[in-house]
Design a protein around this nucleic acid. Structure first.
Lengths: 362, 362
DNA sequence: TTGTATGCGTTATCAT
DNA sequence: ATGATAACGCATACAA
């Protein structure tokens, strides 16, 4: 009956009463060799072995050789848990992915973000541990994990509003950096975001420059910064030519809503000749609707998307879109955490530029 | 000058001499409250606090209240590193993703595998930590991490041939389960695989049953079991009708190589009327090439893929393919590790069945 | 250059 | 029901 309590108020998460539901047979692990074993086998003291391990000077050649032989002999492998305990550092950083399952699988950026963060952390010799939060139970357990000294800092990808994990991070004063900007983000955190507004501005401008007169938009996720900023950029780029009737709003970035929205839009405005979709998935859906309505892309309607995801290369014709520097986002977030780890870098907000990728759909 | 040596022979990996390249200012962390603090503040002993934390009986109501107040007061959060050290368990399992970057981003199954593994581990209240191996440096660091008691077991996804990580796992006798079957897998490990051969056989058979006479294949990743077995199943299904000239080989499962390979193939064999692509991404690329060459799918050429990834539903027409139970693969692998953690389950090999999903492309 | 002793924060074993 | 005390494996200040 192995029950462990996390102090409720300290973490601010619903307390879990049990570590494990089932039987908890503590399986007898093979005993591993310790510094002590190496010391006795090599005839030196533990201190000297430790010094050897940490590469300090003042280890004689004879001692070194004896130690190396002993290590081989007993098969010594350092215990990092002990090392962490005494050094108060783990050389590792958590990366929290907080997404409903389907999105995690679909989102093309997430993998790149992981890779970018890992590359940066790796260069600084920090281990990245990805923690996926997929249920309330996960939330709870991850909170315990974070509080346990496993990680020295954390990168958060796509945090939710009112995310309990954010509370924990805040309370623990864990150095953190967010990719994206959750509405209720803690003051102490740093952020890396893309400049949605100016990117939307740029691609809309470019669409207009191809001679399109009646340009509409399918705006999505207006409750998030990303969605709202893309609409703002679109509006800004069009200036006086902006027509509210040409904007169709949908809640999520999805293929299906994109298809429906486009159908509605061309019915309302048959003279539509340009379309900015808030994401590539939306754009793909819209292109399908346009095709079904007998409009040719790009001849009749120019279509542009956002993300440069796998969708963009799959549509026919290939989609003109905005490339999100996903890898750089991950790298930058990791860098921010590392900075906080070294000195006490002030919370900062980084904005990365996107690039327009012009293909055949407009 | 913080240098740490991993005993070369114990781990069998190239030894890293330094933990970090740059300056290593050990940033003064905020001192966190300990059991000791809680004990003194509440007027009970450390033992009692520990018992309270672990939910054991024999804690009086008065003691409980005093402890709870003290915890709130000092903001106590348990230190898992210390807990791990004394308990010799971390309640967490590593999941190693060993992929070249691009593949990690492209592979639709990896996300599902993660989710499946996480769900299973989560149910057993174990934390999953995803470790991505993307460079030699990563290999080294992950080896250290594994040896450090951070994780009690490990799930390995898509291990490479001669993977140094596998050596480490073997040497540490870390309970492990592989998703997929690396050629030089250690005897001690367990595996979860899909039956690539018979799945390839089944879908090829079905393709032939639609009346196709000249059936080709784009075979990928032949250095892995998955790739080799799919080719074997294809060949087996065709029997005497198998024509080596109709097989095009590519190194990776990718859209672009699929497109190129298909172009080559129809040039070499213009009478091609059926095509088995080793993955959906490859199939999508192939369909693009067929379209470009003026062939209609499925009228002129029937195309089938493998994976039932997101690709399969994006192609026009929708792709007939083989569904990989990716989520179940992850779940099963995690379960195997958990079993080893509880008792000493013998290494086992699990084979999961795939199902043919027949859509419109053939 | 090396050995000794102490502490890191917890759990566990004894007493009481 | 509770309090002392000994581990856990390692790093390090200090003594030698």
């Amino acid at each position: 009956m192995n029950v462990h309590r996390v102090p409720p108020d300290a973490l601010g998460v619903k307390r879990r009463s049990r570590y494990s539901e089932g039987v908890q047979t503590p399986r007898p692990r093979k005993k591993r060799a310790t510094v002590h074993d190496v010391a006795t086998h090599s005839g030196v003291s533990r201190g000297t072995v430790s010094r050897y391990m940490n590469g300090e000077r003042y280890v004689s050649a004879t001692a070194r050789e004896a130690i190396e032989a002993a290590i081989r002999e007993v098969g010594y492998v350092p215990n990092t848990a002990a090392r962490n305990l005494v050094m108060q550092r783990s050389q590792s950083v958590g990366l929290i992915v907080h997404e409903p399952g389907s999105l995690f699988v679909e989102d093309p950026n997430i993998g790149e973000i992981l890779l970018g963060a890992n590359a940066t952390l790796s260069a600084a010799d920090h281990q990245m541990a990805v923690l996926v939060v997929d249920s309330d139970r996960d939330t709870d357990r991850v909170a315990r994990y974070l509080s346990g000294g496993f990680v020295e800092g954390v990168v958060i990808v796509s945090a939710r509003s009112q995310d309990p994990i954010s509370d924990v991070i805040d309370r623990l004063e864990l150095p953190a950096a967010y990719v994206g900007h959750p509405p209720d983000a803690p003051e102490s955190a740093s952020f890396v975001v893309i400049d949605n507004r100016s990117a939307a501005h740029a691609i809309t401008r470019r669409l207009a420059d191809t001679g399109r007169r009646r340009i509409g938009m399918i705006a999505a996720a207006l409750d998030r910064d990303s969605g709202a900023d893309r609409l703002a950029g679109f509006r800004e780029a069009l200036g006086d030519a902006f027509d509210p009737d040409l904007v169709e709003r949908i809640p999520l970035y999805s293929y299906l809503s994109g298809r429906e929205a486009a159908a509605t839009l061309i019915e309302r405005a048959p003279d539509l000749d340009g379309l900015f979709a808030a994401s590539d998935a939306v754009a793909a859906g819209a292109m399908e609707a346009l095709r079904a309505a007998g409009r040719r892309v790009p001849e009749d309607v120019g279509v542009v998307g956002f993300d440069d995801s796998a969708w963009a290369r799959r549509t026919v014709p290939a989609l003109s879109t905005v490339r999100q520097p996903a890898r750089e986002l991950g790298a930058a977030a990791a860098k921010l955490v590392l900075d906080k780890l070294i000195g006490d870098a002030a919370p900062s907000q980084l904005q990365l530029d996107c690039t327009v990728v012009w293909r055949d759909s407009a």
